[in-house]
Deep mutational scan, measured.
Amino acid sequence: DIIVVALYDYEAIHHEDLSFQKGDQMVVLEESGEWWKARSLATRKEGYIPSNYVARVDS
């Protein structure tokens, strides 16, 4: 799995977006363009995230 960590807070604009806080970790489910589908490890919610707001966690 690709794990990313939030670099900034993000408040969902559309209902399919995923809100998150700086430091939150998410599993990337699908990478396509600038918006990635991800699942929050904390809340288990899924939605689209702006890929420029996150960084990959080296395992």
Rank of each mutant, 00 (worst) to 15 (best):
I2M: 12
I3E: 03
I3H: 06
I3K: 05
V4C: 09
V4Y: 12
V4Q: 01
A6S: 03
A6N: 00
A6Q: 00
L7F: 03
L7H: 03
L7C: 10
Y8K: 10
A12W: 02
A12M: 04
A12N: 04
A12I: 03
A12C: 04
A12H: 02
I13K: 13
I13E: 11
H14F: 09
H14W: 10
H15P: 15
H15G: 11
H15R: 12
H15F: 12
E16C: 15
L18C: 02
L18A: 00
L18K: 00
L18R: 01
S19G: 08
S19N: 06
F20T: 00
F20M: 04
F20K: 00
F20V: 03
Q21W: 08
Q21K: 15
K22T: 09
G23I: 00
G23C: 08
Q25F: 15
M26P: 01
M26S: 00
M26D: 00
M26I: 06
M26K: 00
V27G: 02
V27Q: 10
V27A: 08
V28L: 13
L29Q: 05
L29C: 06
E30L: 10
E30W: 11
E31P: 09
E31V: 13
G33M: 04
G33V: 04
G33Y: 05
G33D: 06
E34Q: 12
E34L: 14
E34D: 13
E34A: 13
W35Q: 07
W35N: 06
W35L: 07
W35C: 09
W36R: 03
W36Y: 14
W36E: 01
K37W: 15
A38T: 04
A38S: 03
A38L: 04
R39S: 04
S40V: 08
L41H: 04
A42V: 14
A42Y: 08
A42F: 08
K45L: 12
E46N: 04
E46V: 13
G47P: 00
Y48G: 03
Y48H: 05
Y48F: 12
I49Q: 00
I49N: 01
I49R: 00
N52S: 15
N52W: 15
N52K: 13
N52D: 11
Y53H: 09
Y53L: 13
Y53I: 06
V54H: 01
A55T: 13
A55S: 10
A55E: 13
R56T: 08
V57S: 08
D58M: 11
S59Y: 12
S59P: 13
S59M: 13
